[in-house]
Amino acid sequence: MTDIALKAPGVPPPSPPPLAAERGKRISAWTRLTANRNWLGLWFMLPAAAFLILFLAYPLALGIWISFTDARIGQSGAFIGLENYEWLSDDSVFWLSVFNTLLYTAVASVVKFAIGLYLALLLNENMPFKALLRAIVLIPFIVPTVLSAIAFWWLFDAQFSIISWSLRHLGLISGNIDFLGDPWNARWSVIFANIWRGIPFVAITLLAGLQTVPPSLFEAATIDGASRWQIFRHVTYPLLTPIIAVVMTFSVLFTFTDFQLIWVLTKGGPVNATQLMATLSYQRAIIAGHLGEGAAISSAMIPFLLGAILISWFGLQRRKWQQGESND
């Protein structure tokens, strides 16, 4: 509230300056609107809030509502209660997509974390061209997913795949691998592409975390005779936990809701082997036109996402408590 005392009524952001007649009055309503902290806060928040309420909060609620209706494209449906969910619970394709999504998320996140952490540790060493290497590592993250997915589509081609060709010439396999045509091959192929795309983000953010660990701790541990594994396990890893929690939340969240990569590589095929919940909801809602059912599938993702967020949140809390930090 000190603002009012400190300053003359200034130029407010969205509206013209106050009239001269109003200046000098004690505290007019206008002054309050332009100088009071809470009102000012409201004005400043207005553009962001408008976007987020109109195009994020409202659709989020609307999505849950649509999942309780039999809406189709072009017609708003009537309330049908839990019928969409009941229908889905008997739908084997839906459960297959849940299984695929969980497998995809679990395998991809674990591998991304392991290789990303390893890469971060490697990049943290002293070597020539360090900055350049870091910049190069991020390139897969910069290039739009769809465009790199197209490159993978070509790499995974059934007939002309360079991977098959190389393995054949090395004498490891006799025939071409059908990367995207066989259910399990397709699953591993899309998981590989997702890992490839996700490693740079994990590595660079963990590297940032590593930079905050004082080198003197490593030196002290070395003098105490700790092995490299012990240094990692008892010095590096505990100090990295908060950043790991944040990075892994994002990684899990974005892997779980992935759409682009699958859509480009397999469109959910062969026979739904790579159908994720996001791609299934797109197929049911936009292609088949059953908005209600599609919305029910995407609403079914919300509990999983909340679970991931809560786990990482409590992971963070535990760290704070261990470090004796106050919650801010």
Binding site: G63, I66, A71, T257, A278, I286, A295, S298
Partner: peptide, 15 residues
């Protein structure tokens, strides 16, 4: 930031 586009696109399309 944690709300992914894949759960928003259906209601957003009607909006």
């Amino acid at each position: 930031y944690l709300v992914p586009p894949s759960i928003l696109f259906i209601p957003l399309s009607s909006v």
